[in-house]
Design a protein around this nucleic acid. Structure first.
Length: 764
DNA sequence: TCTGTAGGCGTTTTT
DNA sequence: CGCCTACAGA
């Protein structure tokens, strides 16, 4: 089979002993290498169940299993292939008691997490506009990404002190609910792998990790631990495609792998089988400006290629219209099908105008991503019922359903029960059972009876779930009937309630499919270690429903595009401030990630690449004329780019006074590194912009047609140090507003960027 | 308990 | 602009 591989690929496949780092450039045949490598291991006699392959997404895991099956057949079934989270959950179910969980533990998604944080903030009497549940949760998540436990977490300032108070209580409630969040799955699996009793380090002879550049600290430690007996650890990744730093991915994992495993084999896959040389040259030029990366350069045998087309439109509507024209033309002239095209944008908010343009022209399209099925309220309701049935301790789900549909158990009633539970050190469900007793005086008789009816209903459903014959779908249907949920929906009689009903039908349908698949897998008298209900709930927590292959033109964020490829790609919104996003000012690490994002976008294209932007763009309903040409475009050598007929010769300037404009391309070599720092702010009332030019700060009102107004100078300079009474010292990264309303975006080391009213800071 | 609305706020997203 | 949340009022 080596004949089907190039020398580097072949090296990566056959070097099976010891640690190995495979740096797989975009389009270099990474999946091929991983699957061939696993086939090679099996060929050499490694038992399939002693091979573990970990991925980030279910899609990648499925794809991998599918391709290995094609190579080796049935044996592929027994290879451990799964996402980090699913693999961790599987290991935890087998050893739940060892980490303080019961086997039927619940997995909380981010919505549940947020609800729980809100609950804890409420219980701790913390009502602080700086401590939104979102912010606190994100701090807890970040801590978990680094493996920092609630006990070990230390506050350093106002905000983190507050997190230090919330985190332990959050964690305690989570455990009392017999629940884990996504971060816990990994942390507990690591704990299990470390404690030795479960002997997880002996379980696998070979461990492979895909998308290694996206791993966080805990994930790295986990796979290192699982591979620790033989150190047959194979990590595959591309530091240039690391785009999830903001959710904990630690690029150091890939950059330091060789230090952690001295003598590790390193293979670079640099031959690209996807794109033309022109496209690769552009991608290489953009990514070359990043400092923190492993040196590599993609090449291809597909010399030349069509030039990259760059179009600057007047506004985002015209940008969309240009794309529609281009698609139409290529569809007719080159006989392309709509499925050949993909449109990428930096943020979802940009998709609407594009969608409208495509719809107006009757071009078929599919938007990838967006609202998720399991996020719909009615779906969450049903799942919450099932969770409480499977795990009565789950108080987040219990709180959700206790009065849904409304049954007269309101907030005050529920709070009394919670108070009782906390006082007696029981779960909320247990307290509920007690309070529902006739001789209990906690509630007035009316409320008590309603509660008793709810408790009885849940008991009945639980008994039904325990019966070996009842199906999941029937359980859900019974619940929908007995609670009157469907009846209420029908009574609404709106278009929306009809949609909701359909979603519920789809949900019960998916339950039937799941049970069917499970029966097939286990055989006629198969016994699973875990109940069908728990198995189903685990699946919906860990596996998003597959997005449909997509008909017509594909539209998605650049993040969603990773791992995909299309013959024709449009990268839109290439304006400084939009792409790259400059929300956090010009933090170099953030900019490097934006640059990697641009690299990912460009390398998705096989044959043709279009880059577009707009001189004016509406943002949050306001017109924002503050964007100039994306610096990433300026990084692409001029000779690779052509401008379509009707395109502008001048780059988008944002109507700035000449003195403030970025120098024209010709005036500046493409690789010049001393571009002036620019910060654009996204303030609502009037979008303003601050530039620093040789240390002199100027600010002007964008709406005044670019006039430059010294009176509006706030006196704040970018990079200036300020002190805030709550957050401590930070650095000014952006200035917006005038007079009393001047607001600053200040970056505080432990907290991150905050927007604060300038009056409250002290200039240092 | 439910519904309407004002106000706030706003990347990227999988598990 | 549009969504989501929080809260007021019926």
């Amino acid at each position: 089979m080596e004949a089907l591989l190039n020398p580097a690929q072949s090296d990566a496949v056959t070097h099976t002993v010891g640690p190995i780092l495979i740096l797989a450039g975009a389009g270099s045949g990474k999946t091929r290498v991983i699957t061939y490598r696993i086939a090679e291991l099996l060929r050499r006699g490694v038992k399939p169940w002693r091979i573990l392959a970990v991925t980030f997404t279910n899609k990648a895991a499925q794809e991998m299993r599918h391709r290995i099956t094609q190579l080796v057949g049935e044996e592929a079934r027994d290879v451990w292939i799964g996402t980090f989270h699913a693999t961790s959950a599987r290991l935890l179910r087998q050893n739940a008691e060892r980490v303080g969980l019961r086997r039927d533990f619940t997995i909380f998604d981010d919505g549940d997490q947020k609800t729980l944080v809100s609950r804890v903030l409420k219980d701790l009497d913390i009502a602080d506009r700086f401590a939104s549940p979102r912010a606190v949760l994100s701090a807890i998540d970040q801590a978990k990404n680094r493996g920092l436990s609630a006990e070990a977490y230390r506050g350093r300032d106002y905000f983190t002190d507050l997190v230090a108070r919330v985190y332990p209580v959050y964690q305690e409630r989570l455990r009392a609910s017999n629940a884990v969040d996504f971060g816990d799955l990994l942390i507990l699996a690591l704990e299990l792998a470390r404690d030795g009793v479960a002997r997880l380090a002996d379980k696998f002879d070979h461990v492979l990790v895909d998308e290694f550049q996206d791993t966080n600290r805990v994930q790295y430690d986990l796979v290192a631990r699982l591979a620790s007996k033989w150190n047959n650890l194979c990590v595959v990744g591309d530091d240039d495609q690391s785009i999830y730093r903001w959710r904990g991915a630690d690029l150091r994992n890939i950059l330091d792998f060789e230090r952690d495993y001295p003598g590790a084999k390193v293979v670079k896959l640099e031959q690209n089988y996807r794109s033309t040389q022109v496209i690769l040259d552009a991608a290489n030029a953009v990514i070359a400006r990043n400092l923190h990366r492993k040196q590599k350069r993609l090449f291809t045998e597909q010399e030349g290629g069509e030039p990259i087309l760059y179009y600057t439109a007047d506004d985002e509507r015209r940008e969309a219209e240009f794309i529609v024209r281009a698609i139409r033309k290529l569809e007719i002239d080159d006989g392309r099908s709509f499925e050949d095209f993909a449109i990428f944008y930096r943020t979802h908010a940009q998709s609407r105008v594009l969608e409208e343009a495509l719809r107006a022209s009757d071009l078929p399209y599919t938007v990838v991503g967006g609202t998720r099925f399991y996020d719909r309220a009615e779906v969450k309701d049903v799942l919450a019922y099932l969770r409480v049935i499977a795990n009565p301790a789950d108080e987040v789900s219990l709180e959700r359903i206790v009065n849904r549909p409304a049954r007269g158990i309101g907030e005050s009633t529920y709070e009394k029960i919670v108070e009782r539970a906390r006082r007696e050190g029981r779960s909320v469900w247990e307290a509920m059972e007690r309070v529902a007793q006739p001789d209990d005086g906690t509630l007035a008789t009316g409320a008590r009876k309603k509660l008793a009816a709810f408790v009885a209903l849940m008991d009945e459903l639980r008994a039904m779930a325990a019966s070996p014959h009842a199906s999941l779908a029937e359980l859900a249907e019974t619940m929908l009937e007995r609670t009157g949920y469907l009846e209420r929906l029908a009574a609404e009689g709106t278009r929306e309630s009809e949609d909701r009903r359909e979603n519920l039908m789809e949900l019960t349908g998916s339950m039937r499919d799941f049970e069917e698949a499970m029966r097939r897998e286990l055989g006629p008298d198969g016994e699973s270690a875990i109940s069908p209900l728990s198995a189903y709930l685990e699946r919906v927590s860990l596996v998003a429903p597959a997005d449909d292959a997509g008909r017509g033109v594909s539209m998605m964020t650049v993040h969603a595009a990773k791992g995909l490829e299309f013959p024709v790609v449009f990268v839109t919104g290439l304006e400084d401030g939009v792409f790259p996003s400059l929300r956090d000012g010009e933090d170099p690490d953030v900019l490097e990630e934006e640059r990697r994002l641009a690299y990912v976008a460009i390398t998705r294209a096989r044959e043709r690449l279009f880059l577009t932007n707009a001189e004016r763009r509406h943002l949050y309903g306001q017109e924002a004329r503050v964007f100039g040409e994306s610096r990433f475009i300026q990084d692409i050598p001029e000779h690779l780019i052509a401008r379509p007929v009707g395109g502008r010769r001048r780059p988008a300037s944002g109507g700035l006074p000449a003195s403030l404009q970025r120098p024209a391309r010709a005036a500046r070599p493409a690789y010049d590194d001393d571009a002036p720092p620019v910060v654009r702010s996204f303030a609502k009332p009037e979008v303003r912009r601050v530039e620093r030019d040789e240390g002199i700060s100027v600010e002007y009102d964008a709406d005044a047609g670019g006039g430059y107004d010294e009176d509006a100078d706030s006196g704040f300079r970018l990079g200036q140090r300020v002190r805030h009474p709550m957050f401590g010292e930070g650095e000014v990264r952006g200035v917006t507003g005038v007079g009393r309303d001047v607001k600053l975006t200040v970056y505080f080391p432990q907290i991150g960027p905050k927007t604060i009213v300038a009056r409250f800071v002290e200039v240092l």
